[in-house]
Structures are given as C-alpha cells and as structure tokens.
C-alpha cells in the first residue's frame, strides 16, 4: 500500500482531539495570563514601567497591567507605603479575586528601606498588611529582578493550579540587589 493511501491523521474531525489533564491546561492558561495591578508609589514604579516597556516587555509573559483590582491576579507593590496608604493597599488586595498573589518590589515595600530608621510615617514592610508571595530586594531592583520574581511566581501558580499547593513561605529573589549598572548575569568588572 502506498503511503499516500494511508488515512492522514487529523483530517477526521474525530481525531482532532488532544487528551490531557484539564487542570494542567487551565494552569498553563493562568500562568501565562498573570494580569497585574499597577500599584506604583515611588521610584520602583519607574522600574515597573520599564519592565512593561519594549525592552523588557513583560507582555510576552502574558502580563498586562490592569487599572482595577477586579481584573487583576497579581498585585505588584512597587514603592514606599506610608501608614496612611497601607489601608488602601489592604482594600485593593481585598477587592482582588481569589487566588490573589502579591509581589513586594524594592526595599521600601519589603521593610521600609531607607526610611525605616528616621521616618515616622513609613510602614516598615507591606507584609504587615497583606501576605506577600515574592520579595524582590533592591533599591530599586532592576526589571530583570522583577521578571525573575515573576518567573518564581509562575511556578507557584502552576503548583497551585495543578496540585492545589499554595506555598506559604515567601520566595526571595536572590542577587537582585546588585551594583548599579550590573545585573546578576553580568560578570563584575575586574579591578
């Protein structure tokens, strides 16, 4: 029998079916469509905008900024949070639909940063008000560090969607607090 006479797979409508676990398919969809809520209050917000710009382009990861918490899966807290602002963060977090994820970007959102010693008004870490999944150190961290944190978060989203495991211990991006003008993959200049 000639090869041309064999039935071509896929031409039959009954063969155009892929069998897979629907959880993995949904997880694939969720981890590739992490819409994030813009919450930029300080200079980390500039790096966040840069990450959304054409050079770093987090759109390719399916990350699209949303202006409302109702449409967001992920809140990126980028910048200094004062005591007065902390209630707003909490309200926005409560308005997000489950499952909701929080990335704390930069020293100020992590721990108060340079303000923790002398300021009376700055909250010493957004984790006092909302649970944080990923911490990104740096003042401000580079967009690569943000993308690194998001990749770790995507891993968590997949684990949650497929296995139902919600990691409670936060992930800390390593090597994000690198020197100015460098990034974790770049070798240090020789003295």
């Amino acid at each position: 029998m000639a090869v041309a006479d064999l039935p071509k797979p896929g031409n039959d409508p009954h063969e155009q079916i892929v069998l897979t676990a629907v959880d993995e398919f949904l997880a694939w969809g969720k981890e590739n469509s992490l819409f994030y809520l813009l919450f930029a209050t300080a200079c980390c917000g500039i790096e966040l905008m840069q990450a959304g710009g054409p050079r770093y382009d987090v759109d390719r990861l399916g990350m699209i900024p949303r202006a409302t918490p109702r449409q967001a899966d992920l809140m990126i807290v980028a910048g200094t949070i004062t005591h007065k602002m902390a209630g707003v963060v909490r309200t926005l977090w409560e308005q997000m639909t489950e499952p909701r994820w929080v990335v704390s970007m930069g020293s100020c959102a992590n721990s108060g940063g340079p303000f923790s010693k002398w300021s009376y008004s700055v909250l010493n870490g957004v984790d006092k008000y909302v649970p944080v999944d990923v911490y990104i150190p740096g003042c401000p961290p580079r967009p690569e560090a943000l993308i690194d944190g998001v990749m770790a978060l995507r891993e968590r989203v997949r684990r949650y969607r497929t296995m139902g495991v919600r990691d409670r211990d936060p992930h800390v991006v390593q090597g994000a607090d690198c020197r100015f003008g460098s990034h974790p993959g770049k070798p240090e200049p020789q003295a």
């Binding site: 721990s111 010693k117 009376y120 010493n124 006092k128």
Partner: peptide, 23 residues
C-alpha cells in the same frame, strides 16, 4: 516630637530591628 512606637498595632521597627542613634 516623639515618634510613636506603633500605629494601628504595627510597630515602627520590625522584629529584631535596631538602629543606633534612631530617634
């Protein structure tokens, strides 16, 4: 002015945090 020690139950220093010469 004396800095408040806490606001709405959130202390102004994190656990174990200490600064020499802080206000």
């Amino acid at each position: 002015y004396l800095y408040p020690a806490q606001y709405h139950g959130v202390p102004h220093l994190r656990e174990g945090q200490h600064f020499d010469g802080a206000p």
